[in-house]
Structure formats: structure tokens, C-alpha cells
Nucleic acid binder design. Sequence first.
DNA 1: GCCAACGTTGGC
DNA 2: GCCAACGTTGGC
Length: 153
Amino acid sequence: MQYWLMKSEPDEVSIDDVMAAPARTVPWFGVRNYQARNFMRDGMRVGDGVLFYHSSCPQPGVAGLAEVASAAYPDASQYQAGGKYFDPKATPEQPRWVSVDVRGRRKTRLLPLAEMRQVAALEDMLLLKKGSRLSITPVTRAQWDAIVALLQA
DNA sequence: GCCAACGTTGGC
DNA sequence: GCCAACGTTGGC
């Protein structure tokens, strides 16, 4: 069992959107960073815990809890010519990008990034490292537990 | 809107 | 294989 933090712009897909989706499940498409892709492809297992993070918005922070709901599979958006996520070098025979399905568990209070920065137990989170921009990062069990506790506080 | 940090691209 | 230029991310 692993834990992850996944960033989403709420204007694109918010925690409310996930909870309202059929089976509370959405495909995580559009990742175009190799490190993040490799986490999905090689690291994620069904049932892994996911911190659902809202980024690029007025109140960035953790907005809900979710879980990995599928193994990695080719991201269909890479083939859509003219689309935002089109990759001309990707083919169905040689896909370059993958998605996983993410199922919402529950919407939580918004745990702001600024609050997370003040918690000693979270100081090693990759999210909080200077210059960190990865949209998917691994989270330790201890960090997960600390965040779940903060969400209930 | 600004800008620091990072990843990718492409000429050489 | 180097590295400058460019594009993107994302907090503020």
C-alpha cells in the first residue's frame, strides 16, 4: 500500500467533480511529465491512497481523499489531434502517456498549503520542496497519517 | 501578472 | 553530450 498526492486544477477537475462523477471515479488524463507518468505506470496499485490537491487556484491545498482505482492504461488524449494533450509522437502501438482511474473517498475541509508548511511532520513532503512542480508525488505513511489527522482537526 | 524553478528541445 | 533558449508550472 502506497500513498500519493495528485494535483488537479479545480477549474478542470475539482473534488466536487470527482464525488459527482459516476462511481465517484474519473480518469486521470493529461499528465505529460515522465516522472509523474512513471509513478502511475510503475508505482501505483489499486487501492493506494490519494491526497486530492487543488492547485493553481485561490486556495491551494488538500481538498479530499481518494484512491487509485485502476492500473495504468494508455491515455486516450495523447492521440487526439488538435487537442490540448495531443502528442504527435505517440501511437496506439507505442503509447507514451498513461492514465489511471481515481475514485473519490470523501471531500474534506480544505487544508491550505500555507498550513501544511507550518507542520513539522510534513516538512519533508516533496510538495513543499522549493521549486517542486511535480503533479504526482509519493507520500509516506507518516505524512499521510499526519494529514488525515489535520483534516479531522 | 510576476517570476523562480524546472523540464524539454534542438543546434552544434 | 553540452547547453542556451524556450515553455510550463504554480504560488504569491
